[in-house]
Design a protein around this nucleic acid. Structure first.
Lengths: 205, 205, 205, 205
DNA sequence: GATGAATGAGTCTTCATTCAT
DNA sequence: AATGAATGAAGACTCATTCAT
């Protein structure tokens, strides 16, 4: 009975949803979650005020979806860049480079997420932590742990070190000017981290 | 006599202003600037809704004052703890300790400031950067520069390094649970930074 | 062949219309006319959101149709049960029994109608009164008037008495719990009405 | 510190609250709860849109307050008129007269309440039943029970009879035209009820 | 006939701010 | 100085209705 095929309709819905999420990222990055205007989000995605409510039950759900999508993108982005690197040092550098690139490429999403990370909404923070869990785990298991085991890193506490690294990562990645240009260089940050962790006299590998 | 009354009045004004700022810090820490309710701030300071407008022209000015007061407190707090330390390593440790202690002691203010730092309000961020300028300068001039000059630190870029250190500082200090307990230890963070910066084989001094 | 298809189509249309009215009754009974959601009605009838507009020009028309259909059902229901009774007392009892049974059997429709009857929509009330006119008339002509003429009832005003009886009828029928169980017994109500109207010493007939 | 005395302020609040409730009664009577516009209520009471929210936390609370106030008014109204009557018959008549007079005098409130009574909002119905409990109890204890005990009434079930009487009462009181003129006469209704309940050959007392 | 994506008018609610006292 | 009643702009959300397919 439907004139559109099922798949066509799904395609339209997917695209609209994407457009709304993109729009939400921009609006939230610019004004913060609390000041983001749902009507504006829908309209600057090219739709009427109410359309967003055909796709998300409310403002909260919109942000939750944005967080999850961003984390997923971010994860993919990092994994792709790191898994090909074999040495610990290379991985560390690739990790920071990936972060900086991600922010540059997905600036609004990244800003929105940073906003939440240091913002007052406990509920969203938890969503964020959960969504980023895989990245945390990856850093611990694929960079820190091998580094320590191979003797490249000092015998640091893996837990604390992961936290420190992520803190450095998020803190430095998030420092960009309005155009998205980072204030620091991924190499500089990676170098800082490398020196902080490496065994003296260690050979890079 | 009139003079006396005058100074009494001033004293009362100062105290009321303080109470309002305290209240603002708590409210903003809990709900974020955008969701902070000015009426609530005034009332939980023990005054009527309108009273805050006898002290600050509006919500913005209230936050600006809070930022400036917090920066000033923070500066004093750090300087007191560091100036007595002579060695670079001691100063580094004292710096992080002071930060963690400040957050613990002035939790609402610290949370409010972190909120702004990573939040979407460019205008407030600028105020914040300006207000924290002296601390940036102090770290650069009293920790990094002497460290490099004395050969205790590697010959790093002073500008980048200050930024990195402040990033690490703010990022780690701001990670506290709801009760204000930090997730990391200042010693651990200081150690991380120390290793990142020190000349290999350097003697701590 | 074409004729056959024609009637088949009509049959389908009739069934769809019925399904939509059933669905409307349930939704309106639950949420009231104002809060009834047209899209929900269409969907819980098993169709898409827009389908209802292929059968009714709008929300109002949907309710109007529901009122008329309900009145018609109600009328048939009552007439069937009463016309077979000959005595005035029997008719009175049958009348209340029929009402209670109707409510039990067509709960959502009955609730929707009661809703309108005591609700604020003058326009619908008028539709309702018109649609129920035959029942009013029937009660007046087939119960009250014969009762008075035969001396079984006191010489009451036929107009007022019909109104009183209908009021009692609607008021008691509409008092059901959420499952549709009436709070009163038709016999009790009929007995009350009988005593109110009967000539003292009258013989039931 | 306050320029108004406490009592003056309280007086103003009381009056404003009253005005808002009056306005709410009119608006709800006219359009029903669901279609009543809170902004309109506030504005036709002579205030700005938001003022109502300084007095009631929301639309629901506004209606709850209206129900309770109406029940209280109604109770007072009835008790005053009935307690002075000693005989059962007189009380029955006074009861219906009071009801009709109440509706005439407080038409919007009465219509609003009737609306709720037969409307779809279970929550409000419960509030309404609770608020009207004292009137139910009064009818049972001060009219029905004495009537039965003195032999003036037939030995009916007190519970059912109270319900029947209240049903008749609410049903007949609520039938008014748009101007508030009742369709029935309290004496006619009282007479109907009296005949329904009285012992044959009973002497009125 | 049926579909469901899209629309946008309408409503409840919040709260920064004003100001008469 | 302080008060708190009042304001009204702004924004989240609902849903009856339209219409291209």
């Amino acid at each position: 009975m439907a004139r559109h095929k099922q798949s066509e309709r799904e395609e339209i819905r997917r695209e609209t949803r994407q457009a709304l999420l993109d729009s939400a990222a921009v609006e939230i990055a610019r004004h913060g979650y609390d000041n983001a205007n749902v009507n504006t989000i829908s309209q600057s995605a090219g739709f009427a005020k109410g359309t967003v409510y055909n796709y998300f039950p409310g403002k909260e759900a919109l942000l939750t979806a944005l967080i999850e999508e961003t984390a997923s993108l971010h994860r993919t982005f990092i994994l792709e860049r790191i898994q090909t690197e074999k040495g610990v040092h290379e991985r560390l550098v690739a990790f920071f480079r990936a972060g900086f690139d991600f922010v540059t490429q997905y600036l609004p999403r990244a800003q929105a997420v940073i906003n939440i990370l240091y913002g007052p909404h406990q509920h969203f923070k938890e969503t964020l932590y959960e969504a980023y869990q895989p990245i945390f785990a990856f850093v611990g298991q694929e960079i820190i742990a091998p580094g320590i085991q191979s003797g490249v890193f000092r015998p640091v506490s893996p837990g604390y070190t992961t936290t420190l690294l992520m803190t450095l990562y998020l803190g430095t990645c998030s420092q960009v000017d309005e155009r998205g240009k980072p204030m620091l260089d991924p190499e500089v940050v990676a170098d800082f981290a490398w020196n902080a962790l490496k065994q003296e006299y260690a050979v890079r590998r």
